[in-house]
Design a protein around this nucleic acid. Structure first.
Length: 255
DNA sequence: ATGGCGGCTCGCAGCCGA
């Protein structure tokens, strides 16, 4: 089974690139973030024609998540249970016996922002909800844009980023608390190239300069981690004409 | 080097992302 996650930064703009990804990678499931589309405008025709079914939870302008899958999905849940949040950031579904949870964790803006407090509160709510999801599903994958670089090696210059949003201690602690639920960062189960990142800032011409962060992750439950065979970042997608600022992350599991 | 980009909108300027 191949699972992938990609913050597309507008599905309207990136649809041709998503269709190309589906045809060349043939993932069993693809989690999308920042679709920026209301559900009524979701490109179901094109996705269906590519051989994929969709569950989506979107809104215009901001946020929006979706899971595309070859096989039908079951028990779809939108949002964090008990958290009445107008921002569409979570969708979960069971696909071929695997609980696939797609998340777009808030950005936080800066450590002094109200949005940063919202981010930390949101992460605590996610953690609490995941406990119940994990109790029900031994095969569980949490994929998405976490907006957290968990370790020094995930940041092009840890000194520059020290204490800043995406790399502050409370955010890293929240990431470790997710791992402490019994999840594994699939990327670090394997040897990886140095300077492996999943996001590069458009504004600083970050991609060409190699200035990136690894903030898109696939966390796997113990049962999936022990049969995970590969995790990679598809950085070549960032070279494309009109690329998303994020690259896809792909995992292969022997299911 | 937090913007210089690139997406969005009851749009042509201002917002937000990370």
């Amino acid at each position: 089974m191949k699972l992938a996650t990609w913050n597309v930064n507008s599905l309207k703009v990136r649809l041709p690139q998503v269709l190309d990804f589906l045809s060349t990678e043939s993932p069993d499931a693809l989690c999308l973030q920042e679709t920026k589309l209301e559900d009524g405008n979701f490109p179901h025709l094109e996705i269906t024609a590519a051989g994929y079914q969709t569950v989506c939870s979107g809104q215009k302008t901001y946020n929006g998540v979706a899971i595309l899958s070859r096989l039908p999905s079951a028990d779809c849940v939108m949002g964090i249970l008990g958290h009445d949040d107008p921002q569409k950031r979570v969708i979960a579904a069971t696909i071929d016996g695997v609980r696939v949870i797609c998340v777009y964790i808030p950005n936080g803006e800066s450590v002094t922002s109200d949005k940063y407090r919202y981010k930390l509160d949101w992460l605590a709510r996610l953690n609490a909800w995941l406990k119940t999801e994990m109790a029900q599903h031994s095969r569980l994958a949490l994929l998405g844009d976490y907006n957290i670089a968990p370790e020094d090696r995930d940041v092009h210059d840890p000194k520059v980023w020290e204490g800043k949003v995406l790399f502050s201690e409370p955010e890293k602690a929240a990431f470790r608390e997710l791992v402490a639920l019994g999840l594994s960062d699939s990327f670090r189960l394997f040897d990886q190239p140095e300077k492996s990142y999943s996001w590069w800032d458009y504004r600083t011409n970050g991609f060409k300069r190699g200035l990136g962060l690894r903030i898109d992750h696939v966390l796997l439950s113990a049962e999936l981690a022990k049969i995970c065979k590969k995790c990679s970042i598809d950085r070549d997608r960032r070279v494309h004409d009109r690329p998303s600022d994020h690259a896809p992350v792909i995992v292969e599991i022997e299911v």
